[in-house]
């Protein structure tokens, strides 16, 4: 629940965006799509862990279980 997680997501997004542009310009569309997919999976992995922690806290706090 700290802020560098969010900036890490932003950094991955920007890197993947630039990388795909470079790959597309050099004619490798498939690798560009693969890179986007890989970046997406990495970011989703990090985010899902945080979201499950948040929802666990909310459920435990509000007694929703």
């Amino acid at each position: 629940m700290d802020i560098d997680l969010i900036f890490r997501i932003a950094a991955i997004g920007i890197i993947v965006a630039v990388l795909t542009q470079v790959l597309i310009r050099s004619g490798r569309e498939e690798q560009a799509m693969m890179t986007t997919l890989a970046g997406l999976i990495v970011v989703l992995g990090m985010l899902v862990r945080e979201i499950s922690g948040l929802f666990g806290t909310i459920q435990q706090l509000f007694g929703l279980y």
Partner: peptide, 13 residues
Amino acid sequence: EYAMLLSTGCMVL
């Protein structure tokens, strides 16, 4: 899609 993920991360924070 990364914009959406970033806003989700912001919401979680």
